[in-house]
Amino acid sequence: MSTLVLYLALAMAILMLVGAFVVVVTKDLLVAVIASAVVDLVLAILFYILQAPDVAITQASIGAGLTTAIFVVVVRKTKRFEDD
């Protein structure tokens, strides 16, 4: 892992934590779901940087793809906005 890749990993980790923070603060559940998809996708890139391509492809298709689809359907069937 070269230094350049390590800085890329640092940027990805920051992006991931920012996405998780967006999920915490937003009131719009659709925004929360899309932000959590971003977190999962960035996690796949981190897995690839850590030399785990098998896990990366699984995370990208299952974690970021299928889970997001299920979440979007559920948000559509229930309520979009968090009320309090």
Binding site: A20, V23, L29, A32, V33, S36, V39, D40, G63, T67, F71, V74, V75, T78, E82
Partner: peptide, 11 residues
């Protein structure tokens, strides 16, 4: 919110 709790679990 229950959806957010489930997202937290996946996190």
């Amino acid at each position: 919110n229950l959806v957010k709790i489930v997202i937290g679990l996946s996190f």
